[in-house]
Each structure stands twice: as C-alpha cells, then as structure tokens.
C-alpha cells in the first residue's frame, strides 16, 4: 500500500447514464419489492422523473471510480485482498433513471494497522451541472498477506 495515495484526487469519471433496465436489474439483485424501481408509471405517479434507484445503487457509480483508483499503477493493492470496511451514503436527492452522473473521488485517509491497510475514499456524485446528488464514502481494507 502506497501511503502517498492520501490526498489524491482522480479526474471526474463519467458521465454515467443511469439506465432504466440497470435500475431494474439492480433492484432485483438487492431483492427490492418497491414498484417505484420497476414500474415507470408508479415512479411517475410518485413524482419522480424516472425509475427510482435503490439507495445503494450509488455504489455502481462509485465502483467505477474505485476501480480506477485500484488500477492506478502505484497503489500496491491486490484486488483479491480487498474487503469492504464501511460505507456511507448521504443523499441530496435520490438517483433516478435518466440521470447523468459524474464521480469525483478523493482518497481522504490511509491507515495501517497490524499489517492491514485501510483506505478511505470519498466520492462526490454530481449531475452534469455540478449539483451534488449523493456523497459516497467507502473504507476498503486491504488484508495482510498470510
């Protein structure tokens, strides 16, 4: 793990176009029963401009940014040794189908404890006008080699 990663900011990633079928696919994968994530008429009747993405859908957009971070040549991270430590989403508004989103990722902290490294990354997910939609904060734990 390269400690110099702390403070690194990636260039914005995207735009990610939130597709209707992707929202449905994700809703099924997390065993959602909400009609607002499946039925466009129900979402519209509830006042949304597109199918309502489940709250954790924001990870799909963040994931692309995290993959880019892990792929940086100098991270020293072995993907198979990465487990998720914690996760937070703070919403300004929900993500809906039709959104075009940009992910702005910064590495906010790197810590090492008993050979394990903890990387905390904060991703501001905005629309194309730069308006914040959701902030996603992840801590990844890179487990020590046995």
């Amino acid at each position: 793990m390269n400690p110099a990663l702390e403070g690194r900011t990636l260039p914005p990633i995207g735009p990610y176009l939130v597709g209707r079928e992707k929202v449905r696919e994700f809703a099924r994968a997390v065993q959602s029963r909400s009609p607002l994530s499946i039925d466009a008429d129900a979402a519209s009747a509830a006042g949304y401009e597109g199918l309502l993405a489940p709250p954790t859908f924001a990870i799909v957009v963040q994931e692309a940014a995290l993959q880019q971070l892990l792929a940086e040549p100098d991270t020293g991270i072995d993907f198979a040794r990465v487990v998720h430590g914690d996760q937070r989403f703070g919403f300004v508004r929900p993500v809906v189908a039709g959104d075009e989103l940009l992910a702005h990722l910064s590495v906010t902290s790197i810590k090492t404890l008993a050979g394990n490294s903890m990387v905390t990354a904060e991703t501001a997910i905005t629309d194309l006008d730069g308006e914040l939609v959701v902030t996603a904060v992840s801590t990844l734990v890179v487990r020590a080699e046995q």
């Binding site: 029963r33 909400s34 009609p35 607002l36 994530s37 129900a42 509830a46 949304y48 309502l52 993405a53 489940p54 709250p55 954790t56 487990v83 998720h84 430590g85 914690d86 996760q87 937070r88 989403f89 703070g90 919403f91 508004r93 929900p94």
Partner: peptide, 14 residues
Amino acid sequence: GGDSGRVLDYRTRF
C-alpha cells in the same frame, strides 16, 4: 411504501 427517495443517509460498518 416503496419510496426510497425518503432516505437521507445510510451507513454501516461491515
């Protein structure tokens, strides 16, 4: 009632 747009914040540790 299915309205996940009412979620303001969701966090956990694993």
